[in-house]
Design a protein around this nucleic acid. Structure first.
Length: 301
DNA sequence: GTAATTTGACCAAC
DNA sequence: GTTGGTCAAATTAC
């Protein structure tokens, strides 16, 4: 990590800070929610989408950081990149860092005329005991039984493949029954603009040039994205392959190593009073926060 | 009606 | 010839 180019490191720090910042907001909402006496259904209806959006922002920050790590780790001198997500039951590896955006370049117009570069090196892989969201919207386009696998392999492309030409794809394969273990292999990189909480542009980072640009905007999720984000909790549509209720749970996923971070985090949070809570929010988010909590919610501080 | 998923076929890589 | 990745029509879900 020390050998990362300064711009890459800066971008990664930015991503991590963003994730921490968003998680902080989420925690504030959750703690406040547990303290408030109000259980108005309408307010709940406003809070939940907001909370979901925050969770998705956190997930996206992690995803981007991982992508940045993968992108820049090849220029570091022999530095072995540690697993960034220390999930107890998951692992990450970067089988090949020289991905040249080599996913299938199937043409929309040229039917039956596919220009595919297959069996190229994945961008990165993740093994996990559950099917977790990674902050992007995927569309399943196929599944197949492969030779040395007992289970079907599912193929997903970015939902923005056709409207924005996003080349990112992923494959999800169950590799173990008990305990359930899934391998998610990502190919290519997202160059799509995501119009939900944040707009992320990572193009230059993945081109031959190692420079990068990250752009964030704070708009609120669209209907489509709420549909997606709700899958965080229902997980029925995005990756329906052999999903069991335990597989998609978001609980109990924190590794022991992260617990210490959380502890510090909670200490930080305990020093906060809700008077300055909104000061931590960006302008747009403050507006939304007002919408959610502005009326009928009394702070107990 | 629209969007997402399923599934058989196609085709390039091996 | 076999295998893996993708397409696209059919089917299903919302």
């Amino acid at each position: 990590m020390e050998n990362q180019p300064s711009n890459g490191r800066k971008a990664m720090e930015e991503e991590l800070n963003k994730g921490r910042y968003t998680a902080n907001q989420l925690l504030q909402i959750l703690v406040h929610k547990s303290n408030t006496r109000h259980r108005d259904a309408e307010v709940e209806g406003l809070v939940l989408p907001f909370v979901e959006d925050l969770v998705r922002k956190v997930l996206r920050s992690f995803s981007n950081t991982l992508l940045l790590l993968n992108t820049h780790s090849d220029v570091s001198d022999g530095v072995v990149m540690p697993n960034t997500i220390n999930d107890v039951s998951s692992s990450l590896k970067c089988p090949n860092l020289e991905d040249k955006d080599g996913v299938c370049k199937g043409s929309i117009n040229a039917k039956r005329r596919r220009v595919c570069r297959k069996r190229n090196a994945p961008t990165w892989e993740k093994n996990s005991s559950h099917l977790m969201e990674d902050g992007y919207i995927w569309r399943k386009y196929g599944q197949k039984m492969t030779m040395n696998a007992k289970y079907l392999r599912s193929y997903y492309r970015c939902t923005h493949k056709y409207d924005q030409g996003c080349p990112a794809t992923k494959q999800v394969q169950r590799i173990q029954e008990d305990p359930p273990l899934y391998r998610t292999t990502y190919y290519g990189h997202h160059n799509c603009k995501i119009s939900l909480g944040q707009e992320i542009i990572l193009e230059p980072a993945f081109s031959s040039d190692s420079s990068m640009f990250l752009s964030f905007s704070t708009t609120f999720p669209t209907k489509e994205e709420y549909q997606f984000s709700s899958s965080l909790f229902s997980s029925t549509k995005q990756e329906p392959m052999e999903v069991t209720p335990d597989d998609c749970g978001m609980h109990n996923q924190l590794p022991s190593s992260d617990y210490h971070l959380l502890t510090d985090y909670e200490l930080d949070f305990n020093c906060l009073r809700h008077e300055n809570m909104q000061s931590m929010l960006s302008f747009t988010e403050s507006v939304q926060f007002d919408k959610v909590y502005g009326s009928g919610m009394d702070f107990d501080g």
